[in-house]
């Protein structure tokens, strides 16, 4: 009978303990740490000043209200470009570009102009293996044209795949897409 008493006592204790462990406090707001809400592409023409050429803001990070801005480019111009990834859900906004650079051998940005758009790009930075990361690049426009330009950030792809270091995103690069943003571009 003593065992019974002990058991029932521990049962009551357990019930009470667990009943108290759930509290009615509102849950904590989670600041999503890893999300990239914003892609900014800054371009500086030779001898000119830097401009925010393309910007994609997805502040909910779920695609319902994305905001896109784009600036026209000048024909026959060489731009120095840099890509910036931000998490604006943090205050102040977190610069994810730092992480992308630090883990450069796991990341690569690809720039994909459509066939009608007369521009080409070259990488200006390298990771520890000597492969491009693509956060810094050169963009050269030629004739007046229209088209689209897509920026893709690949995570954990095969950066040694044939053509990858020239910016060719073939299937053998693989990996998973962290960012994929497309802009309408006018070269005038």
């Amino acid at each position: 009978m003593k065992a019974m008493k002990l058991l029932s006592l521990s049962l009551i204790a357990l019930l009470t303990f667990s009943a108290c462990s759930s509290d009615d406090d509102a849950p904590e707001l989670i600041n999503q740490e890893e999300v990239i809400t914003t892609l900014n592409v800054y371009l500086t023409p030779e001898g000119g000043t830097e401009m925010l050429a393309f910007s994609y803001n997805d502040l909910d990070a779920d695609g319902l209200n994305p905001e896109k801005t784009t600036m026209p480019l000048s024909a026959n111009t060489t731009y120095t470009g840099r890509v910036e990834f931000l998490n604006k859900l943090e205050d102040p906004a977190e610069d994810i570009t730092v992480e992308v650079r630090e883990e450069g051998n796991e990341h690569q940005v690809f720039y994909l102009p459509s066939t009608s758009l007369d521009l080409n790009t070259t990488y200006l930075d390298t990771d520890v293996d000597g492969n491009p990361i693509g956060v810094e690049f050169r963009l050269q426009t030629t004739t007046v044209s229209n088209g689209i330009l897509t920026f893709i950030l690949i995570h954990d792809g095969n950066k040694f795949a044939a053509g990858a270091s020239e910016g060719i995103l073939s299937d053998s690069v693989g990996g998973e897409t962290d960012i994929e943003a497309t802009f309408d571009v006018t070269i005038q």
């Binding site: 990239i36 809400t37 914003t38 892609l39 994609y56 997805d58 990070a61 779920d62 695609g63 319902l64 994305p66 897409t177 962290d178 960012i179 994929e180 943003a181």
Partner: peptide, 9 residues
Amino acid sequence: IETTIRGSF
């Protein structure tokens, strides 16, 4: 389909 900054889903 929704298009987000990560592409379409």
